[in-house]
Simulated assay, not measured.
Amino acid sequence: MKDMHAEGIAHVVGLEHIDPEDIHLRRAASIEDSTTFTKKFRKGDILFGRRRAYLKKAAQVNFDGICSGDITVMRAKEGLLPKLLPFVVNNDKFFDYAVKHSAGGLSPRVKFHDLANYEFLLPPKEQQAQLAELLWAMDEVIENIIFVKEKTEFLRLINREKLFTYGIAALDNAKNIKLKNSKCGLINKEWQAHKFFNIAEVTSGQVDPKDEKYSGLVQIGSERIEPNTGRITEFKTAKELNITSGNYLFSKEHIIYSKIRPYFKKVANPNFTGLCSADIYPIKPNSDLLCKEYLFYYLLTDKFTQKLLRFQNRTGMPKVNREELGSMYIPVPSLDEQKGIVNILKHIDDSLDAIEKKLSSSKALQKSLINQIF
């Protein structure tokens, strides 16, 4: 890599660094990483993922570097404004063409000489400039929304940790709050630390999802819980999913917690009666001591997860067993304080939901504009 250093090249790009349907390259590896890549690109070029073109990977770079042989480097020629090229290759017609002309079995690739035959309508330079201005203005809107989303996600992360250590008063001035050491780490000195199984119980005893009493209920597997948010991504019944193995029955009084790979933080608060796979624990808190939503949010914290991970010395697929979960401790403030913490975190989640809806609609509009123009 010495020759690359001499040329001022510091970045390496593989297909894994290009996000589907995103005109921006947001990640790269260091040239220090061992690599056999030798294909060079320049700032402003488009990196198109020619392997598995159906993944729709084509991003513009803002630095010089080298990339994988499974990436085609594109650069605008005379007659096409460079600012327009990212949008020309990020439209459905281009991707469909690339897929149609790909060859290979499990990992189809498209050759550049096939891509070179792709045809599209190209207006005069003056109109190209106007189109580029419109499309980049739309892109700026999207980038601003992404910025706000990232900042709000960071706010959520910080508040999760602060609120379960200091309490609501931390939002005003955490310095004046006295803490104490407990079996769940540092917590507000006014709080108690309770052993998990003293304030919550995990459902035992499975039911048959083929039974008519249960087959019409929504079934949740860990793959249908979004990491770190608690969102359930799909609502289908046990019958629709053809579930045949034993499942746990949960109710509105339960939260559900995936015991597989606990570092993914897959916890959900369904608020309906349903079934969950054997890899998920239905947990019912003692309502006299613990607000269900408070426990839900606490199980999403790094504070809880890092302490739980001390048990995880297994290779392959780490799991949390009942004894390990039951040995954990939960910080327990008053019920009023718990509800206050829940309200703050729920408000942040609601804000994030609104931001993500706006982002989704803006991306859909951008895609529609690109497809209409080209």
Rank of each mutant, 00 (worst) to 15 (best):
M1H: 12
E7A: 15
V12A: 07
L15A: 07
H24W: 05
R26F: 02
A29K: 05
K39D: 11
F41C: 00
G44T: 08
A53T: 00
L55F: 14
K56S: 13
K57E: 04
V61C: 06
F63Q: 10
L84K: 04
K93M: 13
F95K: 04
D96H: 11
A98E: 13
G105Q: 06
S107W: 08
K111P: 08
D114K: 08
F120Y: 15
P124Y: 04
Q128A: 00
Q130Y: 10
L134D: 07
W136V: 05
V141D: 14
E143S: 14
E150Y: 08
F154G: 00
N159F: 06
T165D: 03
G167W: 00
L171S: 05
K183L: 15
G185M: 06
F196W: 00
S204G: 14
V207R: 00
D211V: 13
L217D: 03
L217Y: 04
S222A: 04
E226L: 06
E234Q: 12
A238P: 11
L241C: 05
T244K: 11
Y248C: 01
L249Y: 09
E253V: 06
Y257A: 03
S258G: 11
T273G: 08
I280C: 02
I280D: 05
Y294M: 01
F304H: 14
Q306Y: 11
L308I: 01
N313W: 05
T315C: 01
M317T: 10
P318A: 13
E323S: 11
M328N: 05
M328W: 00
I341A: 06
S351R: 10
S351M: 13
A354N: 14
E356W: 05
